[in-house]
Design a protein around this nucleic acid. Structure first.
Lengths: 106, 106
DNA sequence: AGCTTATTTCGAATTTCTTCGAAATACAGT
DNA sequence: ACTGTATTTCGAAGAAATTCGAAATAAGCT
C-alpha cells in the first residue's frame, strides 16, 4: 500500500463523526445500514452525513448499494485490513524486529 | 481506548508529511532521530517540522528527549499498538465475530 | 559575557474542513 | 404525470490546517 493512500484513509477515519459512522457500519456487517438510520444514530444533518459518507467512499473504506429509494452503506473490510496491515508492517512490526533501524529512514 | 482519542491519533497520522515523519521514527527504533536529521530527510522548513512534530507529540504517538542542544524524537510504540488494537477490535474483529455481521466479511 | 548550533514560537497567508439549510435529484407507487 | 420518501448537491459561513520566514529561546563552548 502506498503511503499517500494510507494517509488519505487515516485522515478519513481521523474525524470523530466519521470514525463513529465507520464503526457503526463495521458492526452492521454485511447487512449494512441505510443512510437514513445512520442519520438517526448520529443525530446530524442529512447533508453533513452525506458529506462524510462521501469522504469515506472516496477512500474506499465504505461502499454503497442502491435498494429502491434507500442507499445501503457497507464497510469495506478488505480495505480496512490493508490499512491495519500497513500500520502494523510499516510502523509497528519493524520497530520490534528490525535490527537495521537506522538505514530504512533515509 | 476512547473513540475521540483514537480519532485524534488517526488524524495526526492522516497527513502525508506526518505519516512519513512517523514512519521514519518507527524505523529509527529506540535510537530515535534528532529533529535536524528529520528535517533533512523530509526537506521541509524547520518551523513546519516542529509544528507536525508537536501534533504527533500531543497525541502521544511521539516523545522527545533532550541531549544537549539536540532533541531526540522517538516513536511511542505502545501507543501505536493501542491504536492498531482499537482499529482491529472495534472496527475489524467485530465484523468476523458479530453474529449480526455474518461471516462473509471475514 | 558573547558566539554558535539546534529548535521552537510568532505572525500571517492560503487552503481545506466542517456544518447547515435550501434546492435538486432518484426512485417507487397512485 | 403527480406525490412522497430518500439522499445528494449547492452555496455559504466559520473554524482549523498547512506552510513559511523571521524572531525568540535553549544549551553548550570559548
Amino acid at each position: 500500500m502506498k503511503l499517500e493512500q494510507a494517509a488519505k484513509q487515516l485522515e478519513a477515519l481521523g474525524n470523530p463523526t466519521r470514525l463513529k459512522l465507520y464503526r457503526i457500519l463495521v458492526r452492521a456487517g454485511e447487512a449494512g445500514r441505510p443512510v437514513g438510520t445512520l442519520q438517526e444514530s448520529l443525530g446530524i444533518a442529512a447533508s453533513t452525513l452525506s458529506h462524510h459518507l462521501h469522504r469515506l467512499i472516496l477512500t474506499g473504506l465504505v461502499s454503497q448499494e442502491r435498494q429502491a429509494t434507500t442507499l445501503i452503506c457497507r464497510a469495506n473490510y478488505p480495505i480496512m485490513r490493508d490499512l491495519v496491515g500497513f500500520l502494523a508492517d510499516e510502523c509497528c512490526a519493524d520497530a520490534a524486529s528490525n535490527p537495521a533501524a537506522g538505514e530504512a529512514a533515509a
